[in-house]
Amino acid sequence: MWHLVALGCLFFLGLSFLSATLLRRRCPALTEGQVVCISARVVSSVQAVMAVFSGYVITSSCNHVMKDSHWISKDYVLFGTPYMVYDIYAMYLCYWYKQKDNHKSTFSTVIDFLKKNSLITLHHLVLLLICLPITVFYRKGLGDFFLGCLFLAELSTPFISFAKILSQLKKQDTLLYKINGIIALVTFFICRILVFPFMYWAYGRQYGIDTHMVPFHIPLHCTIANVLLMAPQVYWLSQIINKAAKTMKTE
């Protein structure tokens, strides 16, 4: 088990180092802050592609939504665990570069970062400290199909990351940025919002239950967990929509 975690550490840290090194060599005009932030988005996109591929393999292999399992579900959770730690640090590093001219102490910078990125940081910590132990130790091999569905939610991440890369390059006024924004919005809505009612529909279809009755046939903690996972996604979707609306108004 731990060898997968160690492999994940080496992979994501190595990918970050490699992408940053290539950016420094190929794009010398970029500042160090831009290099760090762009390389972080590259790592995020690669992780998302791997998660989506894993999710597709899992969901397409499970004929029974509860009882069927696939080895990649547990293995990728372990392999991807270091990414959550890396991403928190990468987000802080990007924030530090933006604030370094303000001459704040490290403690003040950390506190400001946590205040402004509290939701995403909490989201990562919940995945690490709560979802990881449940997924690896307490599921007893049940529900791999639903875990695969949650992996598929990462489909929107490469587009969101690409938008951030374009922002770093000051390309917010380009047609490419606008088209990418539309794709990010659509994929986010489908894969991070609609995926939750889809999972209820899939469960109901498996057991011959109407979708709206599924919450009354599954353990209450499952529905509570889904609500807690979905809530930040709804908030982030509203943020994406607001940002898109502001972009349209400035045209």
Results as ranks from 00 to 15, higher is better:
188 F>W: 15
149 C>W: 01
132 L>S: 08
107 F>Q: 11
101 D>T: 14
143 G>C: 05
110 V>D: 09
113 F>H: 01
143 G>F: 05
141 G>K: 07
112 D>C: 05
180 N>A: 05
190 I>P: 01
102 N>M: 15
151 F>P: 00
184 A>G: 04
130 I>N: 04
128 L>V: 13
155 L>N: 05
129 L>D: 03
124 H>Q: 11
116 K>I: 05
193 I>M: 03
97 Y>A: 03
155 L>K: 08
146 F>Y: 15
148 G>Y: 00
136 V>M: 05
166 L>S: 11
152 L>C: 15
146 F>M: 10
174 T>M: 12
153 A>T: 09
146 F>V: 11
179 I>D: 13
172 Q>M: 09
130 I>L: 15
177 Y>P: 03
126 V>Q: 03
139 R>H: 05
106 T>W: 15
109 T>M: 15
145 F>V: 01
97 Y>K: 11
177 Y>W: 05
157 T>R: 03
188 F>D: 01
140 K>G: 04
143 G>I: 04
114 L>T: 08
116 K>A: 11
161 S>H: 04
192 R>D: 01
181 G>Y: 00
118 S>G: 05
195 V>K: 00
118 S>E: 10
153 A>I: 04
142 L>I: 05
139 R>K: 10
146 F>Q: 08
157 T>S: 15
96 W>T: 06
122 L>C: 07
